[in-house]
Simulated assay, not measured.
Amino acid sequence: MMLARMIATLLGTGYLKPAPGTWGSLVSLPWAWLLHVIGGMPLLVLGIVAAFFKGWWATAQMTKGSDDHDPSEIVVDELVGQWIAVLPLSIASWRMGIDITVMWPGWIAAFVFFRLFDIWKPWIVGWADRRGDALGVMLDDVFAGVFAALAVVALAGLYHAF
Score class of each variant (00 low, 15 high):
residue 123 W to S: 13
residue 118 D to M: 09
residue 57 W to I: 08
residue 38 I to R: 12
residue 161 A to I: 00
residue 75 V to D: 09
residue 146 V to T: 12
residue 58 A to I: 07
residue 142 V to I: 15
residue 6 M to I: 13
residue 135 L to R: 10
residue 46 L to I: 14
residue 33 W to E: 02
residue 105 P to N: 12
residue 66 S to I: 03
residue 59 T to P: 08
residue 33 W to V: 10
residue 99 D to R: 10
residue 155 L to G: 10
residue 132 G to F: 03
residue 13 T to Y: 06
residue 65 G to K: 01
residue 85 A to Q: 11
residue 103 M to A: 12
residue 135 L to F: 10
residue 133 D to I: 00
residue 21 G to C: 05
residue 8 A to Q: 10
residue 45 V to F: 12
residue 109 A to N: 08
residue 119 I to A: 06
residue 2 M to W: 14
residue 135 L to S: 09
residue 71 P to V: 02
residue 137 V to G: 06
residue 70 D to V: 08
residue 75 V to Q: 07
residue 28 S to G: 10
residue 135 L to V: 11
residue 104 W to G: 11
residue 148 A to S: 05
residue 66 S to Q: 14
residue 17 K to E: 13
residue 3 L to R: 13
residue 126 G to W: 09
residue 78 E to C: 03
residue 83 W to V: 11
residue 25 S to W: 03
residue 32 A to V: 05
residue 124 I to T: 13
residue 94 W to A: 02
residue 80 V to R: 04
residue 149 A to G: 08
residue 64 K to Y: 02
residue 7 I to H: 12
residue 72 S to P: 14
residue 52 F to V: 05
residue 62 M to C: 13
residue 132 G to L: 06
residue 109 A to F: 14
residue 30 P to H: 02
residue 12 G to I: 08
residue 28 S to F: 10
residue 87 L to Y: 08
residue 143 F to T: 04
residue 68 D to Y: 01
residue 6 M to V: 13
residue 162 F to W: 14
residue 92 A to Q: 10
residue 58 A to Y: 04
residue 141 D to L: 00
residue 19 A to L: 14
residue 152 V to Q: 06
residue 161 A to T: 03
residue 69 H to F: 15
residue 46 L to Y: 06
residue 59 T to E: 08
residue 126 G to K: 02
residue 133 D to T: 00
residue 117 F to N: 11
residue 10 L to R: 08
residue 25 S to K: 07
residue 34 L to Q: 10
residue 152 V to F: 12
residue 52 F to T: 14
residue 85 A to W: 06
residue 132 G to P: 01
residue 161 A to K: 08
residue 102 V to A: 02
residue 142 V to W: 06
residue 7 I to E: 05
residue 15 Y to Q: 08
residue 111 F to K: 12
residue 139 L to G: 01
residue 97 G to C: 04
residue 97 G to A: 06
residue 145 G to K: 02
residue 89 L to D: 07
residue 51 A to T: 15
residue 45 V to S: 11
residue 112 V to T: 04
residue 160 H to E: 10
residue 134 A to R: 01
residue 120 W to N: 07
residue 40 G to C: 03
residue 124 I to S: 12
residue 91 I to G: 00
residue 120 W to Y: 14
residue 51 A to L: 15
residue 45 V to K: 07
residue 65 G to P: 01
residue 158 L to G: 12
residue 48 I to R: 05
residue 108 I to K: 08
residue 95 R to D: 10
residue 124 I to F: 13
residue 134 A to E: 00
residue 84 I to S: 01
residue 24 G to N: 12
residue 22 T to R: 03
residue 148 A to F: 04
residue 113 F to A: 15
residue 131 R to T: 00
residue 141 D to R: 01
residue 54 K to F: 15
residue 136 G to K: 02
residue 35 L to W: 03
residue 45 V to A: 14
residue 139 L to V: 04
residue 66 S to F: 02
residue 33 W to R: 00
residue 125 V to R: 06
residue 111 F to Q: 02
residue 30 P to K: 07
residue 10 L to Y: 03
residue 46 L to P: 02
residue 101 T to A: 15
residue 73 E to G: 00
residue 57 W to C: 05
residue 160 H to W: 14
residue 69 H to G: 08
residue 109 A to C: 11
residue 13 T to P: 11
residue 80 V to P: 11
residue 9 T to Q: 14
residue 28 S to I: 06
residue 2 M to V: 15
residue 106 G to F: 06
residue 110 A to C: 09
residue 153 V to I: 14
residue 43 L to E: 07
residue 124 I to R: 07
